[in-house]
């Protein structure tokens, strides 16, 4: 494996405010690297530094083998970027946007490449439509298309599926995975935890700091030890109160109308939880053991008293 992004102590301050705080990580070629965090955690600021749009206050970052400070232009030639805010020309047709970026990157045989991208991203039928009139999912595909025109080694996608319907999100991730299979490194931010499962490794950003970094599986194992049960079919608020007071229960989180109950290793089993509930007059509860989700990981990281420290 070879490292295509290497970041050491990357820091960006805006006045006194530290948006990105001494972040270090590296990304391997062909990897799908997920960057997770709440709004304002510093995800976009990190990406913008790596793309050479924003100068770091401190730290070093090498992208595609070039220093982002000294060789920003070489970095730019090697990467594709899709910003969080849609940033193509809304007043131009789809094809004009692609043709423009084909020219801007001075790619070889632009006509052919534009056609390829139209086909790859299923944009053929939209090619003469005005970009501003496209639905969200199609727009995002076009954004990805423009970022891929020059066959970059790395693509940075900043919340590429924000505000897109679930079906389009699935399609989009299918594209991302196929890119990765072909050797393109994908650096993607999201706040959808279900999408993060598709990433090979995940960096969790909390208030500008990289709070955790590993594969989804390892994150769950290390940060959410013990077991998880899903409790459904009972009054959520009442049962939450009952279960939180139970010994061996680390955390109870509502997920919709259900509860995720995390117990210590060697703590209560599913029947124990059921018994506790029926003793409190809450019968009919359905309880099954589940795998922890990244959401659980995220909650554990944001509130460490309920994470591994408490276990």
């Amino acid at each position: 494996m070879n490292t295509v992004i290497e970041v050491r102590d990357l820091t960006r301050r805006f006045g006194d405010f530290v948006a990105v705080d001494r972040v270090s990580f590296h990304v391997e070629k062909g990897e799908i690297f997920g960057y997770l965090g709440a709004n304002g955690a510093g995800k976009s600021t990190t990406i913008r530094m790596l793309c050479g749009l924003l100068a770091p206050t401190e730290g070093v970052a090498m992208v595609a083998g070039h220093d982002i400070r000294d060789d920003a232009r070489k970095v730019r030639a090697a990467i594709g970027y899709m910003s969080q805010k849609f940033s193509l020309y809304l007043d131009l047709p789809v094809r004009a946007n692609l043709e423009f970026y084909a020219g801007a990157y001075e790619i070889e045989s632009p006509r052919k490449r534009v056609q390829e991208i139209l086909e790859l991203l299923d944009l053929e039928v939209h090619r003469d439509q005005i970009t501003g009139a496209l639905p969200g999912g199609t727009r995002q595909r076009l954004g990805l298309g423009c970022a891929l025109l020059h066959r970059p080694e790395i693509v940075f996608l900043d919340e590429p599926t924000a505000g897109v319907d679930p079906a389009s999100r699935r399609d989009f991730w299918r594209l991302i995975r196929s890119l990765s299979r072909e050797g393109t490194t994908v650096f993607v931010t999201t706040h959808y935890m279900d999408e993060a499962e598709y990433c090979q490794r995940i960096g969790l950003m909390v208030d500008g700091r990289l709070a955790a970094l590993d594969t989804p599986r390892a994150l769950k194992r290390d940060l959410v030890p013990g077991r998880m049960f899903r409790v459904s079919n009972v009054d959520e608020r009442a049962s939450r109160a009952v279960l939180s007071g139970m010994s061996g229960v680390v955390d109870v989180q509502p997920f919709g109308t259900r509860l995720h109950v995390r117990v210590r290793p060697g703590g209560p089993e599913a029947p124990d939880l059921g018994k506790q509930l029926s003793q409190a007059g809450l019968s009919g509860a359905e309880i099954e053991e589940i795998e922890p989700t990244l959401e659980d990981v995220f909650l554990a990281v944001v509130d460490p008293t309920k994470g591994s420290a408490a276990a």
Partner: peptide, 14 residues
């Protein structure tokens, strides 16, 4: 203001 400048700036254009 529309954000298109950012996209221009990540291209290697001088």
């Amino acid at each position: 203001q529309t954000g298109t400048l950012e996209q221009l700036m990540v291209t290697p254009m001088a």
